[in-house]
């Protein structure tokens, strides 16, 4: 996610309840849900800190991938059988049951590859730009990141300070 570091403020907390208080305070102070992010080193149940539910379209990717993989599988099997037409064990040149195995594997590979791409895309990764972050988050601290603090940076800081440790 492209975040303007200068306009952002990151608060670190040790206690999850303090994070809940901080998010609530920031909401009440007028910050939008999309501008307040919680950074943790472990997944919490969705909405545990009162943050906004994230929407995504990940489920489209496997279907698109499967369709691509299916097409490649069909093309490959049909093309190779036509290009080198030998009768094997009395089976027809275009034998559907064996083709199904390769087509199936192709579809699954396509679905999985596109799912991986989708996960990275929807996670907004890779993101090598400068982003507000603190190493202590990996040591158990919880971060509350206000991405568009603008001129209300002081408000953001006060909300965070009042929330708790």
């Amino acid at each position: 996610m492209a975040v303007n570091v200068r306009e952002s403020r990151l608060g670190l907390f040790r206690d999850p309840d303090a994070v809940v208080n901080a998010v609530e305070s920031l909401r009440k102070a007028g910050f939008r849900g999309t501008d307040v992010k919680v950074l943790t080193d472990t997944p919490y149940p969705e909405g545990a800190f009162g943050e906004e539910t994230e929407r995504h379209r990940l489920y489209v990717f496997p279907f698109v991938g499967a369709a691509c993989g299916f097409s490649v599988g069909v093309l490959l099997t049909i093309a190779t059988q036509i290009a080198y037409p030998i009768v094997t064990g009395g089976k027809p040149i275009q034998s559907i049951p064996p083709m199904i195995h390769v087509i199936y594997e192709g579809s699954m590979l396509g679905a999985i590859l596109f799912t991986i791409m989708g996960i990275l895309f929807e996670s907004r990764l890779p993101d090598f730009g400068p982003t507000p972050y603190d190493r202590r988050i990996s040591e158990g601290y919880l971060g509350v990141l206000v991405t568009k603090a603008d001129g209300r940076a002081d408000v953001a800081i006060v909300c965070s300070a009042k929330a708790g440790p």
């Binding site: 309840d17 809940v20 609530e24 149940p45 909405g47 545990a48 800190f49 009162g50």
Partner: peptide
């Protein structure tokens, strides 16, 4: 209740 959730 768990954090901001009323019921889990």
């Amino acid at each position: 209740p768990f954090l901001a959730h009323h019921e889990v």
